[in-house]
């Protein structure tokens, strides 16, 4: 896609806004529509756009494979350990009221952490899936050459 100047410029302009919108959806999910699942997908979509326009190798530099794999696990662990933290706080598993002195504050903190975990996992999984599909294509092209 190196010769598509318009596509390159427009996507360069768009990607920061997509990322910003992803963050907004992630952290504003309590008050409006949104949450971890959507934010993860939007974030991944921004990176996929980058990979489509600027090439897979450049995108791999932005999000290295190892970082993506660590991200996949980190999200699930963050979710799980939020539950463990509320156990340690004296409540049931995933009972966020025990996370803080004030039950409402605890609920808020818990929901935020859990949504963050969901977002990280979904985003990393989507990127990993896309990279493995696109990466295979890339290599087969090379093999044919």
């Amino acid at each position: 896609m190196n010769h598509h100047l318009v596509v390159r410029v427009v996507s360069k302009l768009l990607i920061p806004f997509i990322l910003l919108f992803g963050l907004y959806v992630q952290f504003h999910g309590d008050f409006g529509p949104g949450g971890g699942f959507q934010a993860g997908v939007i974030f991944a979509a921004a990176l996929i756009l980058y990979a489509l326009v600027f090439g897979l190798d450049n995108a791999r530099k932005v999000a290295p494979d190892s970082a993506v794999r660590v991200g996949m696990a980190t999200g699930v662990l963050l979710f799980g350990f939020t539950g463990v933290a509320s156990l340690l706080g004296g409540g049931n598993y995933l009972d966020y009221s025990a996370l803080s002195q004030n039950p409402l504050g605890g609920q808020h903190l818990g929901i935020l952490l859990v949504e963050l975990g969901v977002g990280i996992t979904v985003c990393s999984v989507m990127i990993a899936i896309f990279f493995s599909f696109a990466g295979r294509n890339h290599r087969l092209d090379k093999l044919e050459e």
Binding site: F37, G40, V41, V125, M126, I129, S132, F133
Partner: peptide, 17 residues
Amino acid sequence: ILTAIVVGVATLALGLA
């Protein structure tokens, strides 16, 4: 359904793989 959609795309990717 919110969660089912995201799980759906993950399983779609698995099937395509």
